[in-house]
Design a binder for these strands. Structure first.
Lengths: 259, 259
DNA sequence: TTTCATTTATTAAAATTTAATAAATGAAGG
DNA sequence: CCTTCATTTATTAAATTTTAATAAATGAAA
């Protein structure tokens, strides 16, 4: 939502083209050179930071809604996206004083009625995504004054049940690391063993063995060695590796066991 | 729902105490002595078998709804229950001719109107459960004429998107096997290494190493040896083992890595 | 009473994983 | 311009773990 008229339409008649009581929230993790961050949104009318999210449209599936929201917030389509949990505790819509009605009226001229469709109890389907930070373009909209990356260990208190969502997203992502390949959009097409090890270390939050871990990826036939070396200055030149497309894609749908 | 008046109330005024558009479906896996089965329900008014499920009440959370439904269908409370995926494709409510309107009228005297709340698009949160078959009491109700265990490799075509649900439930359960302890309600308090190996083999669908696999459980401190042996007739007596409660409970919430 | 089938437990072989060492590379300093 | 040095990758050796093979136990059946 970028214009005031779009906003007004959404608040007064949004229930006509959105599925009532059904939202999506996305934990978008961003990786770049050894740092893991999370994309958060600050609304002008909510005093706490939030996960990017929104209502599901009547003409789209859950996956499509999640893809739309992440694509809009990051500028990147086709990123690694995965449903991790659905949140439906009663009372989870309660903002606990975080919503500023006056500010909302000031910005929109709309008085929020008790029976507005947005006050209805909602269920939110949580998705997480992993993207490369340099390729992403954090995008704000009418309400969100800010849209920023936060290092994973410096995430502020979030609105609603979004704290729990982040905790669960990270937990699910770290389990998925053992069962789905990752890295295709996070590393260059040619990468060194040290780079992919660092990626996994940052995502998992654990130290990995420098020789043993890459060997597992090779044993799974997920990556393979190239006849090319990188020049990294005053050090021994490491060999380049690449992902094996077919194996990678197959593992994405069928799963694997990486330990 | 057991009586006709309950049914009538649900169909005409159910939206008053249920959350509209929000259902739960449960893949209840049953284990007993090396066989894995799935609990299915056959409704009098739907021509195909279904997963047990139902609408979420306005006064309960998702987990509570899932616990209520599984407890009602199996007679067992407090079983291993886990959310695995939420299904919200548009058109997933379409029964594809599986719903028999005439039979429904015959049984209830209710004419289904186009605008009945049950015709609204729904999102279903999928849970799976694992229970011991001998302790379970499959229970039918007003509509479900039958409620039966089906061996996992002999599951018939199901109604709605329940085929996909079962596939996803099994997939999720088999991944969870690597990260959460299982067996406390499926084995006797004292069990042999062969028994727990068989349990894992049946649940995972894979052959496991007879000495190595149990050793991993011991190394994780999940099980420990007792000073007692089982008499199994004309064979060498195996040693009994038990679960370590504290480790087991901790792993249930924090996760583990079992490979 | 002895043999036998079947199962668990122990031991030895194989494979894998970890740690230690060697080799490579170019910057920095004499 | 040559030597030293810090740092990184690659290889080799040690340690550990996993697999396979063998031994021991048990009671039914011959």
């Amino acid at each position: 939502m970028e214009t005031l008229s779009e906003v007004k339409h959404f608040f007064t008649e949004g229930y006509l083209d959105h599925r009532p009581g059904l939202t999506i929230d996305c934990a978008i993790f961003g990786y770049h050179e050894g740092v893991l961050k999370l994309l958060l949104v600050k609304s002008k009318v909510i005093t706490k930071w939030c996960l990017p999210g929104g209502f599901v449209r009547k003409d789209e599936n859950l996956d499509e809604a999640a893809a739309r929201i992440t694509a809009w917030r990051t500028g990147i389509g086709n990123l690694f996206l995965k449903q991790f949990k659905t949140f439906g505790d009663i009372g989870r819509n309660d903002h606990g004083g975080a919503f500023d009605e006056n500010k909302f009226y000031e910005l929109t001229g709309i008085k929020f009625e008790e029976d507005n469709w947005l006050y209805d109890e909602t269920v939110s389907v949580g998705f997480y995504a992993i993207t490369d930070i340099v390729n992403a373009q954090p995008t704000a909209d009418f309400f969100s004054s800010e849209c920023e990356w936060f290092p994973i260990d410096k995430i502020p208190n979030l609105a609603f049940d979004h704290d729990e969502m982040v905790r669960e997203a990270l937990f699910a992502m770290r389990i998925d690391l053992y069962h789905f390949p990752i890295g295709k959009n996070l590393l260059q097409p040619k990468f060194t063993l040290k780079e992919i090890k660092l990626l996994y270390e940052v995502l998992s939050g654990k130290k990995l063995n420098p020789t043993n871990f890459p060997n597992k990826l090779i044993a799974l036939d997920l990556i393979s060695r190239l006849d090319e070396k990188r020049n990294i200055g005053a050090h021994r030149s490491p060999t380049y590796y690449k992902f094996n497309e077919e194996v990678y894609e197959k593992a994405l749908t069928e799963g694997l066991v990486l330990v």
